[in-house]
Amino acid sequence: MAEAAKLQVSDEIAISIQKMNKWYGTFHVLRDIDLTVHRGERIVICGPSGSGKSTLIRCINALEEHQKGSIEVDGTLLSSDLKNIDKIRSEVGMCFQHFNLFPHLTILENCTLAPIWVRKTPKKEAEEIAMHFLEKVKIPDQADKYPGQLSGGQQQRVAIARSLCMRPRIMLFDEPTSALDPEMIKEVLDTMIELAEEGMTMLCVTHEMGFARQVANRVIFMDQGQIVEQNEPEAFFNNPQSPRTQLFLSQILGH
């Protein structure tokens, strides 16, 4: 799997982050982040709580503002220009830890909202697209229900389908399985693996190391706002270089 995955990575650059810095007030959250992501690459970002990994991926679609350095997504420079932000957000999908489905809309309406209002898709067509992706995440029969009627795993899969309806070229995942019961984690990870196999460019903040081994072609370890170490999964897990990474891995793999 890992070998096959690497073949799909192209030379085309999807995301390029250079010398990016971010502060919350006086607190320096991200320090000199340099990161280049190629099209088709799957990256898993891990690290202790508060290391800035969520903040990093939230900067990529401008949910958080960065103060210094540059972020370029598909050749579009992320600036305060609303046009650029709109362009980037329509190409980058995102899934959250707490799903953030719209509770007042049905599953189908959740999926068609953005295509209708952002992509100006006719309703019928938007519903066809939505059903296509709901089938892909294996819950087409829940289309007319409300998010509150679904289990956590189902909700997260709807959230993935909702993002896919916008036909993104890049997907960001912010701890997608952290709020789920153990038996629901698998159904969400399976969906993500399927997505990876289709060649989607993915950045995933997660502590699912099995997922990282199976899917990622690069694992990034962050601590105190810095990228401490990055490597291919085998090398990363079997032969971590920095002492901080070794400590982290021994703690999460130790039990």
């Binding site: 329509s90 719209f102 953005a114």
Partner: peptide
């Protein structure tokens, strides 16, 4: 999270207010 999810989908702030 509702505002963020809508923003991440590319929905403009005015529509986020009225739709979500």
């Amino acid at each position: 999270g509702q505002t963020e999810a809508a923003a991440a989908l590319g929905i403009r702030p005015r529509r986020v207010m009225s739709l979500v």
